[in-house]
Amino acid sequence: MILSPTPFNQGDQMKFHIAINLERMDAQTDMRAVRDHVLEMVQMADRAGFEIAWAAEHHALEMTIAPNPFQIMTWWADHTENIRLGCGVANAAYWHPINLAGEAAMVDLLSDGRLDLGLGSGAYQREFDRMKPGLAQSDSWRYMQEMLPLVRKLWQGDVTHDGTYWQFPAATSCPKPLQGEVPMWVAARSPITFDYAVANHCNIMSWPFSMPFAEAEKYKAQLDEAIETAGNGWDGTFAMMRHTAVYETKEDRAAAMDAIRSVLGRFGNLMTKTGAVHNGFPDEVSAEDLEGNVRVDPEMLEENLMFGSPDQVIAKLRRYEALGVDAFIYYASMGLGMAEQKRSLQSFIDHVMPEFT
C-alpha cells in the first residue's frame, strides 16, 4: 500500500525553503570558509523559520560539492533546531535501494524525524559517463520509478525484489525512519514525471532554470493534468526553485548579475558538453555559444529569476503564489560572494518573508 505524506502547506500561506551547495568557483577559495559559510546560511534560514534546507547530489564538480547528500543533511541536523533536512535530490541510478533506504533512515533517526527524501533523474550526462557509464541521462527516470516504491517497502519490513535494475533476496532497511510517513519528493519537469509523482502521492519540486515565468506556468499545467488523470485526491506540496538575489544597491545588483552569468556559462558547459572541466572546475562557455542567448541577457535574467529589490521580489512571489505554488525554494548558490549571499538572505528574511506570514 502506498502511503500519502501529510502535506506541509495546510493553509494558504506560501512556505519557504533554501537550497545551497558547497561551491568553489576557483582553486584559491578555502574549503573551510566554504564549509563555514554554508552552515551559517542554513542556520540563518533555521532561525528565520524556513521549512526545509535542501542538499543536492553531484560528483566531481567544485561548483556543486555534494558527493553524499545524507552526510550533508546529518551535518546540518547537528547544528540546527527546527528546519527540516531535504535530500534534493538523490540520483536513483547511482544508488542501491537498500543502501539509499538505510542512509535516508539514518538521517531521520539522527535528526529526530526531520527527513524529507527527494529522488530524481540527474542533470548532467558528464556525471552519468563517470558514475553510471552507458546510461543516458534521458533514460534515468526509469531507475527512479523502480527505486521510490521500493524504498517505501524497505522502510516497512523485509522485501524480496526481482526488478529490472535491482534484484536481491529478503532484506529491510536498518534503521527504520522515526517518522511513520517520510515526506517523499520527486524532481519533475516532464509530464511523465509529474504523472508518476502524483500517482504515487509524492510532493513535487520544479526548477525552470533561467526560463521565463511561462515555464513555471507550463509545470503547473502539467501538474493539474496529472492530478486530473490520477483522480486520487493528490494533496501534496508543489514547490518551485529559482536562483535568488535580493539587493538594495547597484553594487550588489552588479555582483549578482556577474555571478549568475558566470555560473550559467559553466552550467551551459555541463549541459551541452561544449567545454572542458579541469580538476572539477568547468570552463565558462560564452553567452554567444549557449542555446537561446536571451537566457543570459541581464535584463531577462533579472525578470526571470528571483532577482531584485525586496519589493520586486515580493511582487514576483505573489505571481507564483497566485499560480498555485505552495513553497518557494530560495536557491542561494550561484557563485556569488559569501558576504553578498548573506546580505541577500538577510534582506529576504527581514523584508520579504514578513509579507507572507
Rank of each mutant, 00 (worst) to 15 (best):
P310V: 05
R47N: 11
H96I: 00
W75H: 11
K273P: 03
I314F: 04
W95L: 06
E340I: 06
S333Q: 07
I227K: 11
I227L: 02
I52C: 13
S262P: 00
D162G: 14
R32Y: 04
W75S: 07
L148Y: 05
S190C: 00
S206P: 04
A19F: 15
P310E: 04
E291G: 09
Q341G: 02
L85N: 01
E215D: 03
E302S: 08
L39M: 15
D26E: 08
T29R: 06
H161V: 10
A92R: 03
L135S: 12
I227P: 05
K342L: 00
S111F: 00
C174A: 15
V325C: 06
A239H: 10
R47K: 12
A256S: 13
L336G: 09
T272E: 12
E288G: 14
I98H: 04
D350S: 11
Q71T: 14
A136T: 13
G86E: 00
V89E: 00
Y143D: 05
L223S: 01
H96D: 11
R253W: 04
A276P: 01
W185C: 06
E62K: 15
R32L: 05
V263Q: 07
A226C: 08
F70D: 02
R318F: 08
Q43A: 02
A197K: 01
A171N: 09
V296P: 01
L85R: 01
L301P: 06
G280K: 13
N82R: 14
R47W: 01
T74G: 11
R84L: 06
F128R: 08
F356Y: 13
V294H: 11
G308T: 09
D195C: 06
V294F: 11
R242H: 08
I227T: 01
H17W: 15
C174E: 14
T229H: 05
I260F: 07
L39R: 14
Q145M: 14
E146S: 07
V277C: 02
Q71P: 06
V198Y: 03
S333N: 07
H201T: 08
I20R: 12
Q145H: 15
L264D: 07
L85A: 02
P183V: 09
A255W: 02
D283W: 03
E288A: 14
H58N: 12
Y165R: 06
S140A: 15
A255D: 07
I72N: 10
L345I: 09
H17V: 10
V263R: 00
H59V: 02
M240N: 13
P354G: 08
W76K: 02
P169Q: 04
N200R: 04
F267S: 14
P169N: 00
T274L: 09
P212R: 03
R126T: 14
D195W: 06
D36Q: 14
P282N: 03
Y196W: 04
E291C: 05
F70P: 00
K176D: 03
L301K: 03
L178R: 15
